[in-house]
Simulated assay, not measured.
Amino acid sequence: MMIPCHKAKVIEITSDTTRDETGVKFRAQELRLVIKSGLVKGLTVMVPYEFEVGQTARPMEVGDMVIVGRNVVLPEPMYYINDVYRLDALWLILALFVIITVVLARWRGVRAFAGLAITFLVIFFFMVPRMVEGANPVLISFVGSMLIALTALYVAHGLNQRTHIAFISICITLLIAFVVGIVFIYLTELSGIGTEDAFYLQFAGIQRIDVRGLLLGAMIVGALGILDDVATTQAATVGELHEANPKLTRRELYQRGLIVGREHIISLVNTLALAYTGAAFPLLLLFTIFKRPVWVTLNSEIILEEVIRMLVGSIALIAAVPITTFFAAWYFGRQGKVQNTPPM
């Protein structure tokens, strides 16, 4: 059963005390809140709030927005602080992101957001519900990725030959990512429960989910995000080379397109490594504090899972460059050959 949650505003702090327990200081506040959302909007409630002094939590102040949970199991509903309300700041930075994108990319930026909306629709209304129902996560992830590539890609980039080339290349490269992923998940004996959220998913009260398959499915979906960038860029690069000089042969188009692609590979591989490392900073600090040997740390499933995920994505990225460049050079080079054929 979903726990009822509401947005609320602190309107009064009726008490604020500090106590010491075995050398640890705790601060306790009694807050008067007014509910700002849901069926009980406008209701005023008293809620206790307690935290350890010196930790990340801070004391509440009048005017703060919070999320309160409502326990409906007890005879009388009991409210408690669930979290600080942060979505207003999220909407602000999201609006900034949308404005900058649309101003710089104009109509293409609007189409990009339409493609992004389709991506989220496929994930949240097809992939996630099917997995919760117990469907094979690998199959659902692969089918979902194909749907995203087929719909979002064409909405964002238009119905043209470059997008056709990118789509074909993405399909082939996703198959490569799938094969590499499944081989190395089994070779490294990853169980799929290397992260805390995957572990607790097994006890979520739903049909048993294949967490190893979920790990492979996550690799496929993650690779798709990288491939979209690489495939469309490479197809566009070769197309522009052809338009700049229609006399270039297929071999010349392929070679010149690959030069740009190599630069793309170098920058994106570094980007991937930094992105995964940055996300794992707290974990790396934890391992350092406990002074485990580097090879033992690397061998742990929680680290190795992220390393394999990064490497599968990087291999897919690298493979996409020559594959997309080949198809683009073959198509645009053929066009040049037809155009340069002398009339009979």
Rank of each mutant, 00 (worst) to 15 (best):
L253M: 09
A223W: 07
S267Y: 07
L268K: 13
T237W: 13
G257M: 03
T232P: 14
L248G: 02
I265M: 07
A236E: 03
R250Q: 10
T237V: 15
E243Q: 09
P246I: 06
T237A: 15
A236L: 11
L224W: 09
E243N: 12
G225Q: 14
D228S: 12
L253V: 11
T249I: 03
K247R: 05
T249W: 00
G225H: 13
A236G: 13
A235W: 01
A223Q: 11
G257Y: 02
I259L: 05
I226N: 15
I265H: 01
E243T: 05
I259N: 13
Q234T: 05
V230I: 15
G257H: 05
G239W: 14
D229G: 06
V230Q: 11
V238K: 06
L268I: 15
E240W: 00
G261T: 10
K247P: 01
R262A: 04
V269S: 06
L248H: 00
T249H: 01
I266P: 04
L253S: 03
Q234M: 11
R262F: 12
I265Q: 04
L241G: 00
D228K: 14
L227D: 06
T237Y: 09
Q234V: 11
E252H: 05
I226P: 14
D228T: 13
I266M: 11
L272Q: 07
T233H: 13
V260W: 05
Q255R: 02
L241N: 03
A273R: 07
A231R: 15
P246E: 02
L258V: 10
I259W: 08
L272C: 09
A244Y: 00
K247H: 07
E263K: 14
N245W: 02
H264L: 12
L248P: 04
V238D: 00
T271V: 13
L227C: 04
L248F: 01
K247Q: 08
G239T: 06
T233C: 15
L224G: 04
I265L: 12
P246Q: 00
L248E: 00
G261N: 12
N245K: 06
G239S: 10
I265E: 09
E240K: 07
D229A: 14
A273C: 08
E240P: 00
A236N: 10
V238R: 01
V260M: 10
N270C: 07
G257R: 07
H242A: 12
V260H: 02
E243W: 02
D229W: 12
T271Y: 10
R256K: 13
L253I: 09
I259E: 06
A244S: 00
I266H: 10
T237D: 09
L241C: 05
R251D: 13
T232N: 15
N270V: 14
E263D: 06
T249G: 07
D228Y: 07
H242Y: 14
L268A: 13
H242Q: 09
L268N: 11
V230K: 12
I265F: 10
I259S: 06
A273H: 01
A244T: 01
R251H: 14
D229P: 03
S267W: 06
V269K: 10
T271N: 01
S267M: 04
G261W: 04
L227S: 10
G261P: 06
A273I: 15
